[in-house]
């Protein structure tokens, strides 16, 4: 069962994403900030990450950058989540090596589809 790591500092968003992923049949791990996220990646070796950008402490971009710098996680599928609707952020995320970029609020079905597609592609 593919494992998805959900990273967001809003508890209710984490809750909804956790539910959605479980229902799509994935194993779900959660983290509330960047440091936790990096720890979870190391411990749990997720197959995909849903990563919020504005996190307290280490931001989502920093997490992304650090993961991409490590050859082990260079190809780990990562979807960025953001409440900023600005193009610049999207471009920055893509340039740093994100696989996809989802703007909040998002359509749950579309998100699940994206996760599914990326996991299929990676397999």
């Amino acid at each position: 069962m593919p494992r998805v790591l959900v990273v967001d500092d809003e508890p209710n968003i984490v809750l909804s994403l956790e539910f959605l992923m479980q229902q799509a049949g994935f194993d779900v791990v959660t983290a509330g900030d960047g440091e936790q996220a990096l720890a979870r990646v190391a411990e749990q070796a997720p197959d995909l990450i849903l990563l919020d950008i504005s996190l307290p402490g280490i931001s989502g971009f920093d997490v992304l950058e650090q993961l991409r710098a490590d050859p082990v996680h260079a190809r780990l599928p990562i979807i960025m989540l953001t409440a900023h609707g600005r193009e610049v952020e999207r471009e920055k995320g893509m340039a740093l090596g994100a696989d996809d970029y989802v703007t909040k609020p998002f359509s749950t079905q579309a998100l699940v589809d994206k996760v599914q597609a990326l996991l299929d592609e990676a397999r």
């Binding site: 968003i13 959605l20 909040k104 609020p105």
Partner: peptide, 18 residues
Amino acid sequence: VSHELRTPLTSIRAFAEI
């Protein structure tokens, strides 16, 4: 402002769709 408004809106939409 947009960031702050989107955050609760995200939860509301997600749970509403669920």
